[in-house]
């Protein structure tokens, strides 16, 4: 009988929902674990990974290397694939039982399907699509708050950056955009506690069935590329865009583009950088014929070094660039390629 069970006081724990597809964790989950490790250090709490799936014990153990102190493992054949109802019910029960202080999800389709249900049932605040998280002491409406989570996110189609807080609620939840937090594995010897949680299937879950599933492995891995050459609408044609491929090739980098370049058919959508594309932070990002709209910048401004090539000296892209070349891409690119090849000789 657990009628006597006292509700645990709110902890300082930071939870990360570890999203997996066919047993493989999404990068964003590891990114979030790394970030949570830092947040939990400031707060004096522990990092817990929540791993839901089937035959995912190894994955649960892998989360220790990225910063989890404890893994909550819910392993059952009925949980093999992500389904809204069993996953949300499982997480809702866990949150109610353990009262974490922070719960983080990737702002993926799965994260955005799951997190709102969990927040709704537990009446928690949920901030969408964050690009940064910080812990700070703040005063708000003349009250002082200690160690609050500052949840930083773009809104209004990317035209503003808002800092959202959840001041008076015990649980702060957020979804976080993929690729914005750094990911680095720690020593492989780092260990944690594995806690298995029993799962009880519910026949109501069966009202929803997955009939088919098609997923293409994304062969393009822009996020891991150290050098990216990115072309925009300023290239004018697919033919001209070949110069972007050529420069990327000689530099040993990947090709990317703006949405206008994708819409014009110069490159496929999987190579789009920005708010509705991929977020990248390479060593070098070369933006060619890209004006630097806010939605594009959102996906690349964390790059280590940025070179912009543009005919318009007032293009906003120059505002976040380290090096600016004012000139026609059709002349600058062949020069760049030629000069670089000569240096290698």
């Amino acid at each position: 009988m657990d009628s006597e069970r006292t509700i645990p006081a709110v902890s300082n724990d930071v939870w990360v929902f570890v999203e997996q597809r066919s047993g493989k964790a999404a990068d964003v989950s590891f990114e979030l674990l790394c970030k949570s490790h830092k947040l939990a250090q400031v707060m004096g709490g522990a990092v817990k990974s929540v791993v839901i799936g089937h035959q995912v014990k190894e994955l649960a153990e892998e989360t220790f290397r990225y910063g989890a102190d404890e893994a909550l493992l819910i392993d059952h054949p009925g949980l093999k694939q992500y389904r809204t109802l069993p996953y949300s019910r499982t997480l809702i029960n866990l949150v109610r039982q353990f009262n974490p202080r922070i719960v983080l999800f990737g702002a993926t389709i799965i994260g955005r399907d799951l997190a709102p249900r969990v927040a709704s049932a537990t009446r928690s605040g949920l901030t969408a699509d964050c690009t940064d998280l910080q812990i700070a002491d703040i005063s708000y409406l003349r009250k002082e708050y200690k160690q609050l989570l500052l949840q930083i996110r773009p809104a209004f189609g990317g035209n503003i950056i808002a800092t959202i807080i959840t001041p008076d609620n015990p649980i702060q939840m957020a979804t976080v955009r993929e690729g914005v937090m750094e990911m680095h594995a720690q020593e492989s010897s780092r260990k944690g506690t594995l806690t298995s949680i029993p799962y009880i299937p519910d026949e109501l879950d069966e009202v929803v069935a997955i009939i088919e599933q098609h997923r293409e492995e994304n062969h393009v891995n822009l996020k891991a590329a150290p050098i990216i050459v990115s072309g925009g609408y300023g290239l004018r044609s697919k033919e001209n865009f070949k110069l972007i491929h050529e420069l990327a090739h000689v530099l040993g980098g990947e090709v990317a583009g703006s949405r206008a370049a994708v819409d014009a058919g110069f490159i496929p959508h999987e190579r789009q950088v920005g708010q509705t594309g991929v977020t990248v932070r390479p060593k070098l990002y070369i933006a060619v014929g890209i004006s630097g709209a806010i939605q594009h910048r959102a996906g690349m401004q964390e790059s280590n070094k940025i070179i912009a090539i543009n005919t318009d000296p007032d293009a906003p892209i120059f505002g976040i660039s380290h090096y600016g070349i004012v000139g026609d891409a059709m002349e600058v690119l062949p020069r760049f390629i030629e000069v670089y090849k000569n240096k290698l000789k």
């Binding site: 901030t127 950056i161 808002a162 505002g319």
Partner: peptide
């Protein structure tokens, strides 16, 4: 439970960089 604590507009200009 969520409150907008601060809002900043994103200013676009062609600021500092090496020519």
């Amino acid at each position: 439970p969520t409150k907008v604590y601060k809002v900043e507009s994103v200013v676009l200009n062609s600021g500092e960089h090496e020519h």
